[in-house]
Design a protein around this nucleic acid. Structure first.
Length: 279
DNA sequence: TGACTCACATCCATTGGCAG
DNA sequence: CTGCCAATGGATGTGAGTCA
């Protein structure tokens, strides 16, 4: 593969990981939601990482998985390796195009910088911008909009009419499991299987020192697998995916946190609230 | 048909977490 | 600090499906 394609692939994979992380933020919420949608509106195409439909509001969330220190220079952001256009400006264009589908006052634009390693030298004054430590504030803000109802479903169906396949953005990238490594990931996206100690309820990440409940760590990794593959997981697949964790523990996690379907040797484990992910 | 595999279920010694 | 209890991994058993 050409270097530029490898870079592009790494960039897309990173963005994808950010979206998965955001899914975990909302794992216990019951909002109508579309992930990674491409909308064709009057000959323009926009990509939205996540769209939530809560009461009469359409909440478009742009998820950024930047992982370094940025400086604001004029209308650009710079780190040690690159300079990018101010990402906040893309929101304006998305808002403008979305306002052709829905009344402006019903559209909420949000941006989430989900990676703990991201920092910027200027404070944001927009309350709809969230940092990695703002999960609870974001959940609280979403709940203040109400809950998903028939109005939300109507909006979702209206948006679906404008969905395009996104091929102009994605080219021919393949995110098959061959390219995604197994193992337990911390919220800092480092592989921490080696940090899991036998008989220990908690696991401390050696990279970011975050203390995790081991079962919840395993649960989140399995949710990630289900999100990636868009289907329930088998016991064996969970064992392979959670490399380094004993089969007994994986069994207990599957039993405790997931819904089992199928019969005899064809058991599948799915999310308890899978219906909230509509795509 | 029998050996093998899979997906648990059960048991048990060991260990960590935490209340008192 | 101590002791209780919950959680752990490993060993073993079981029943159903697969394959030669």
């Amino acid at each position: 593969m050409e270097d530029s394609l490898i870079d592009e692939h790494a960039r897309l994979l990173k963005g994808f990981e950010g979206e998965l992380q955001f899914d975990l933020w909302l794992a216990n919420e019951r909002f109508l939601k579309l992930n990674d949608v491409y909308l064709k509106i009057e000959n323009s195409t926009i990509q939205l990482d996540s769209v939530l439909f809560i009461d009469d509001k359409i909440i478009a969330v742009d998820i950024k998985n930047y992982s370094s220190k940025y400086r604001v220079i004029d209308n650009h952001w710079s780190n040690d390796y690159r300079t990018i256009p101010n990402p906040l400006e893309s929101i304006t264009r998305q808002h403008f195009l979305l306002s052709k589908l829905f009344p402006k006052q019903q559209i909420v634009m949000m941006m989430v910088f989900i990676n703990p390693k991201f920092s910027i030298d200027k404070a944001f004054h927009n309350k709809n911008i969230y940092m990695h430590y703002d999960r609870l504030r974001l959940l609280n803000d979403l709940k203040n909009y109400g809950h998903s109802n028939s109005k939300s479903l109507k909006h979702l169906n209206h948006m679906k009419r404008f969905i395009t396949d996104g091929s102009i953005f994605m080219k021919n990238y393949d995110f098959s499991d061959k390219q995604i490594k197994s193992g337990i990931l911390c919220s800092c996206r480092k592989e921490i299987s080696s940090c899991i100690q036998p008989s220990c309820k908690y696991t401390v990440c050696k990279y970011c020192n975050t203390k995790h409940n081991t079962k919840e760590l395993i649960r989140n990794n399995i949710i990630e697998w289900i999100t990636i593959h868009k289907r329930p997981i088998t016991y064996k697949e969970a064992c392979i995916w959670c490399e380094g964790v004993s089969g007994s523990t994986i069994e207990r996690v599957l039993k405790k946190y997931f819904v089992r379907t199928g019969t005899n040797r064809k058991y599948l484990y799915d999310l308890e609230n899978n219906h909230q992910v509509l795509k």
